[in-house]
Simulated scan of single mutants.
Amino acid sequence: MQMIKFVHHTVWAFDAEWAPDPLAGRLLYGLDEQTPRADIMQTMWRNNGATEENPNPYLKTVMCRFLSIAAVTRRQGRDGSVRVDLMALPKTDDPDSPEAQEVAIVDRFLRALGEKKPQLVGYNSINADMKALLQRAVVKGLYQPQFAKRPNKPWEGVDYIARNSDWHVDLKELVGGWGVTSPSLHEMATLSGIPGKMDVAGNDVPNMWLAGKLGEIVAYNEFDALTTYLLWLRMAHFSGHFDAGQYHNEQQLVRELLEREGEQKPHLLQYLQKWNELRALTA
C-alpha cells in the first residue's frame, strides 16, 4: 500500500490564514464595544498564556477569524493533459469589502469543496485548518449540506473530516512524529529545495491585519499554498505516482504558473527566484 494511495484527477493543495477575532474577545471576556481591536487581541493573548518570551500565544481556532484561504489546483483532463492554477480568497485587498469578510471567505471555500469534491492536501490541516473551518462555519451559522455530507465509512466516498480518509491528505500526518520531532512546513520544504517562509511568518499576520495589509496577507497565504503543493508533488513522486520525467514536468507546470501569474502578481516571481536559488543549493 502506497503512502499516498491515489492521485485524483482534481487536487487542491490549500492553506489558510487567520487572526484573533475581536468579536470573540469582546464576547468571551466581556469587553466594551468601544475597546480598540488591538487592545482586545492583547487581552485574548494575555488570558491564554502570554509571556514575555511568547507575547502572542496560539489561540484556540474557534476564537480566530479567517482572513484568507489560498489553494493550488491541479486538474487532469481525460486526455491526460494537466492544468495547474492558483486561487485565493478574497480577491480584493480592501479589508472592508464584503468579499473580504470571514463569512464570505469560509462559505465560498466550503461550498466549492462540496460541489467540486477535489482531493484535498494540506500541512497540519487535519488538526488545524479543517477544524478551524468547521468551528467558524458553525459559529457563523453557515449552511453547507454538500460539504458536510459524509459516507458511512471513510473509504466509501469523499470525506474531508475523517483522519484516515484518502480524500484529505495531511502531509504532516505522513512525515511527522511526536511533538518536537515533527518538522514544520518551512523545515520540510526548505531542506527539499522548496521555498518555505520568506519575508513573513504566521506570527506577523495579526499585526498585518490590524495595519490593513490584507493584500500582503493573501500573498503570504499564496506562498504557503504553493509550498504545500510542491511538497505534495515531491511526496507523490516518492510514493510512485510520478516517475522522474513526470515529476520534472509537474514542477515545470508550476514554474509556468508563476511566470504567467507573476505578470500581475510580482511576489510570485520572487517565489520563483527563491525556488531557483534553493534548487541550486540542494542539487
Rank of each mutant, 00 (worst) to 15 (best):
A13R: 00
A13H: 02
A16R: 01
P20G: 14
T35I: 06
I40P: 00
M41S: 07
W45L: 03
R46M: 07
N47I: 04
G49F: 04
A50F: 03
N54L: 09
L59T: 02
L67F: 03
S68N: 06
R78C: 09
D79P: 05
D79C: 13
D79Y: 11
G80V: 08
D85W: 05
A88S: 12
L89W: 06
D94G: 13
P95I: 09
S97F: 09
Q101M: 11
D107W: 04
R108T: 14
L110R: 05
R111C: 10
A112I: 10
A112S: 14
E115G: 06
P118C: 12
Q119V: 10
V121E: 00
N124R: 10
N124Y: 13
I126F: 14
V138A: 14
F147C: 02
G157R: 05
D159Q: 12
I161S: 07
A162K: 05
R163E: 09
D170N: 09
K172P: 02
G176R: 08
W178N: 11
S184D: 03
L185K: 01
L191Q: 14
L191C: 10
L191N: 14
M198R: 14
P206Y: 03
K213E: 07
E216Y: 03
V218P: 00
N221Q: 01
D224G: 05
A225F: 04
T228C: 15
R234H: 13
M235P: 00
G240D: 07
H241Q: 09
E250D: 03
L258P: 06
E259F: 07
P266C: 10
H267T: 04
H267V: 05
E277P: 04
R279W: 12
A283R: 15
